[in-house]
Design a protein around this nucleic acid. Structure first.
Length: 935
RNA sequence: GGGCGGGUAGCUCAGUUGGGAGAGCGUCGGCCUUACAAGCCGAGGGUCACAGGUUCGAGCCCUGUUCCGCCCA
């Protein structure tokens, strides 16, 4: 290919798809279960099967891809395992909406079996678009090993885990309050409830004594509608106002019931409210605990839809007229009705009082959740002697698992120390059905049909787990538990279930061997990359399950990244309408630019406010590299082939030696940054090197050597070598562009993705070359440019200068590097020497090795005076700080000698600089006091 | 109420053994310098939220105040 075919501007669209296909064809990311290379494994946080790529995924996957590509190129046997989560509630809702739109009422009309079939059909048709989007992002997952939380193997893992935990007593069934989402009609775990502070109203209700209706206790509540389910009123046992009433009875208003007054020092805070508290154990978590302490009955009022249920109202002995009004009303409606009824009786104290209260909402549908009394399955997380949580805490405390950034540890410990049992049953259909059965013969009374379809099995039924027959009667007529497991239950097993655990249950011997090999090689996985929002949902539970079943941590490092927000720092959400679609950004700026932006902004512990300006900047970076490649191709010797062998190249020119040394140091920085998960630092280092060091300085210097017959070949070779190596260094961040560009310089049939990552080697450091170029070339050129810039001397105006070298050695150095200096500073003519006669009036600049004189015509003397004045002011300021420091005796006495010496040296240099500048200034001013002398 | 993170240039943010205040974008000035105007060269811009303390020395360590964000109760 020649330069004619390279367009002036990089167009990502033309190359991205090609390389996506090529990587897939070459299976660059397929891990070898038998390879002896060091393993490196990552399991992807499985996106929801219903999902489509958002910026969170883009960030998460970009970081994983950078790690994967980096380790792969570094010689590791990399497994990045992709897959999806069945996302129980979310998926069920999606499919259910479709059914409704097709004219059916709801899933119950379809029936469970048919519904699940429909979900699978939906998945086959429209599920998993996100995986293709990940491919577009360049994700180098091992696509041949894609898994799904509901696939056969993973379902086997789920059943195995459930049965074992049950047999260990770590899974149990209980009837208690859980969080009910009335909209999703299912139980939620505690962390699936989001809390929101809202301004509520406090109601004060007078509860009359049963034996003396003239006396009453006033209770305060934010939820008056639940009073129909009260089973006691509590006061503080040491509260002299009320404690003599303990043991008496209350006639519960609006009902036919009498309830006891009890003393409860835990529940009642004497300072707050009225000092008397209504207890509703079926509708409040704290009341349930108090009820348990005092043996109170739980009287529930609502059904699974969160509506007032007539039979329950009857059981609660609610006055019939009121019960009729309340039947099938939501809690919100019920509140209005009950408040009105209380008011009519005249026992509502009118104290309109605003009160901040916390409202629980479903994390899926944002409906208000209700505490609901029902039979559910739980995982016991802190069983004495067999505590899942304690093991998970210890693993992090003993650094078997590192959280990065470490600051998340406090959060992790805080949550784990207070963790409560995990409610894992969900009353939905899409998911792993609880692998528990009940005997229709023995427990028929406990298996209840629910109006509108479905089954409820009460807590009294005896679970049959891992057996085909009833242990009591030997019967085989079994009914499976209708609930399904929390989606997070199966994703908790992801790091080992995806590798084929349990291997002994694989279908055949080949599969078993493969599973064993995978587990042995890739578990524990190396790194988990996760957003902090699922630290508890997912990460903590993987740690518990991994430790329990594999006896080893599931991953060694957890890199926790932040949220991607919009440019104003707002969380992106559909309802706010501020969602930025990463695919749009990829279309507009190219995938590499987006990836690079995300990596460069991924500073630990800080949210990413994504701005398009930043992406645009990195789009420009892509273009810069593209044009560097164009330039290099333009300089390719006609007959040269692509396989420039430069591995043993020992360059001789200063520029060539310099760039090799500089590149080597960049490699070290990038390596250090990546090892510390500092994606931002790695990205900045590569950006800085390729743009400013390689393009801005080196290529400009190389132009000189390329025009010189004797240095041409080595220079072209060095240019290509360094550029190609830079592409490799950059590849994990910008896979598409780097692959494309490398094809012009390497006839390698392998992808760049499989090439070697640059390695730092101390012997490649070249201190002499670095110093020569920095001091003699760069400092000099910058000095001249500063003069030009300040005086607006255009580059087209070539300048003659004098360079006064400070000694013979310096003179030699200037002599040697003069071609670079002349070209980059655009000098027409240079007079070099150690004792030159300087021009009468000139602009001057000093470097370590000499002084540069630029003859001035009269018109520019004024601006030179300005320029020198500015510099003098700066120099004086800097010097003053140093002198103050050195004038402090305590500094001399206490600071380390090295610091003092350094400061003294700086002071010396500062003085010389200042003196030189002020002398120069004086000299320039003589022109105006005595202009004739200029001639 | 408890916990965590943050307040650094006009904007977005870096800045970890305490000793130089930095980057990108934007701004200003000069350039179509034979790869790149999505570019090149130069320049300006900050009492590092506030108040104390430790130290020879604090953006960095300690205490308090304040504002913003998040998590938990």
């Amino acid at each position: 290919m020649s330069e004619e075919t390279l367009e002036k501007v990089y167009d990502p669209k033309k190359v991205e798809e090609k390389w996506m296909r090529r990587w897939e064809k070459d299976a660059i990311s397929h891990a070898d279960s038998k390879s002896d290379q060091p393993p490196f494994s990552i399991v992807i946080p499985p996106p929801n099967v219903t999902g489509s790529l958002h910026l969170g995924h883009a960030l998460n996957s970009t970081l994983q891809d950078i790690l994967s590509r980096w380790r792969r190129m570094s010689g590791d046997n990399v497994l990045w395992l992709p897959g999806m989560d069945h996302a129980g509630i979310a998926t069920q809702n999606v499919v259910e909406r479709r059914i409704v739109s097709e004219g059916k009422m709801d899933r119950h009309e379809l029936g469970r079996k048919a519904f699940i079939k429909r979900v699978w059909e939906w998945k086959a048709e429209s599920g998993g678009t996100i995986l293709n989007q990940l491919k577009r992002l360049g994700a180098s997952c091992d696509w041949q090993r894609e898994r799904f939380t509901m696939d056969e193997g993973l379902s086997r893992s789920v059943t195995t885990v459930f049965e074992q935990l049950y047999k260990e007593g770590l899974i149990y069934r209980d009837q208690r309050l859980i969080n009910l989402c009335p909209h999703c009609r299912t139980a939620l775990s505690d962390i699936e409830v989001e809390h929101e502070d809202i301004e509520g109203k406090m109601y004060y209700i007078q509860y009359p004594l049963a034996d003396d209706p003239t006396k009453f206790l006033t209770v305060a509540t934010t939820r008056p509608e639940t009073m129909l389910g009260d089973t006691a009123v509590a006061v503080h046992p040491e509260d002299p106002r009320f404690n003599h009433w303990i043991g008496k009875k209350i006639k519960l208003p609006l009902t036919g019931r009498e309830i006891p007054i009890i003393g409860d020092a835990i529940l009642v805070d004497r300072e707050k409210g009225t000092g008397a508290v209504k207890i509703t154990p079926a509708h409040d978590f704290n009341d349930e605990k108090s009820g348990k302490r005092h043996g109170l009955e739980k009287i529930s009022l609502i059904d699974w839809s969160g509506e007032m249920e007539p039979l329950l109202l009857y059981h609660a002995e609610v006055e019939r007229e009121l019960a009729n009004l309340l039947s099938y009303e939501s809690m919100t409606e019920a509140r209005k009705i009950v408040v009105k009824a209380l008011d009519e009786v005249g026992i509502l104290e009118p104290k309109p009082e605003k009160h901040m209260m916390s409202l629980g909402k479903c994390y899926r549908c944002k409906s208000i959740v209700e505490p609901f009394d029902s039979p559910q399955w739980f995982v016991k997380v802190n069983a004495p002697g067999n505590s899942l949580a304690q093991a998970a805490i210890d693993a992090v405390r003993k650094k078997k698992i590192r959280l990065i950034p470490e600051s998340w540890e406090a959060n992790y410990f805080g949550w784990m120390d207070n963790i409560e049992d995990w409610c894992i049953s969900r009353q939905i259909w899409w998911g792993h059905q609880v692998p528990v059965f009940y005997c229709r013969n023995c427990d028929l009374d406990y298996i209840l049909g629910v109006p509108g379809g479905g089954t409820i099995i009460t807590a009294e039924a005896t679970p049959i787990v891992g057996e085909n027959t009833c242990q009591k009667c030997g019967g085989t007529d079994l009914e499976q538990d209708p609930d399904v497991l929390d989606t997070w239950f199966s994703s908790a097993l992801w790091p080992f279930s995806t590798l084929g655990w349990p291997a002994n249950l694989q279908a055949d011997e080949t599969k078993q061997k493969e599973a064993e090999a995978l587990l042995k090689r890739f578990y524990p996985t190396s790194t988990l990359v996760s957003g902090f929002d699922i630290l508890f949902f997912w990460v903590a539970r993987m740690i518990m399950m991994g430790l329990h079943f594999m006896k080893e941590v599931p991953f060694k490092d957890v890199y926790i990244h932040a949220l991607v927000r919009d440019a104003d720092g707002q969380k992106m959400s559909k309802s706010k309408g501020n969602v930025i679609d990463p695919l749009d950004l990829m279309d507009k700026y190219g995938t590499d630019a987006l990836r690079f932006t995300l990596a460069a902004m991924a500073s630990p512990g800080r949210d990413i406010k994504l701005s398009e300006a930043r992406i645009e900047g990195y789009r420009n970076f892509c273009n810069k590299l593209w044009n560097a490649a164009r330039f290099i191709l333009m300089n390719r010797p006609g007959e040269a082939n692509k396989t420039t062998s430069v591995s043993e190249l020992a360059p001789t020119t200063s520029a060539n030696r310099w760039i090799q040394s500089r590149f080597n140091q960049s490699v070290a920085s990038v390596d250090r940054a990546l090892k510390n998960y500092r994606f931002d630092e790695a990205a900045h280092e590569i950006y800085q090197f390729t743009w400013h060091t390689f393009c801005d300085w080196y290529l400009e210097l190389a132009k000189v050597d390329l025009q010189n017959e004797s240095t041409r070949d080595e220079t072209y070779a060095t240019v290509v070598q360094t550029f190609e190596a830079s592409l490799r260094l950059l590849h994990p961040f910008m896979p598409f562009l780097t692959e494309e560009l490398r094809t012009f310089f390497k006839a390698d049939t392998r992808c760049l993705a499989l090439a070697e990552y640059p390695e730092f080697s101390p012997e490649k450091n070249d201190v002499d070359a670095e110093e020569a170029v920095q001091k003699v070339v760069i400092d000099t050129i910058m000095a001249v440019r500063n003069i030009r810039g300040e005086m607006n001397i255009p580059p087209s105006e070539s300048l003659p200068v004098l360079i006064q070298a400070k000694d013979a050695a310096a003179e030699k150095a200037f002599e040697k590097e003069m071609p670079y200096i002349k070209r980059l500073a655009r000098l027409s003519d240079v007079t070099l020497g150690t004792s030159l006669e300087k021009p009468r009036m000139s602009a001057t600049a000093a470097t370590d090795d000499g002084t540069i004189y630029l003859a001035l015509d009269e018109a520019r003397i004024r601006s030179e005076i300005d320029r020198i004045s500015k510099r003098l002011l700066k120099a004086e300021k800097a010097l003053a700080i140093l002198e103050k420091k050195l004038g402090n005796e305590k500094f001399i006495a206490n600071a380390p000698a090295a610091v003092v010496d350094k400061t003294k040296a700086e002071q010396q240099a500062g003085i010389e600089n200042k003196n030189r500048l002020s002398a120069e200034l004086q000299h320039l001013e003589t022109f105006f006091s005595n202009p004739t002398e200029t001639q």
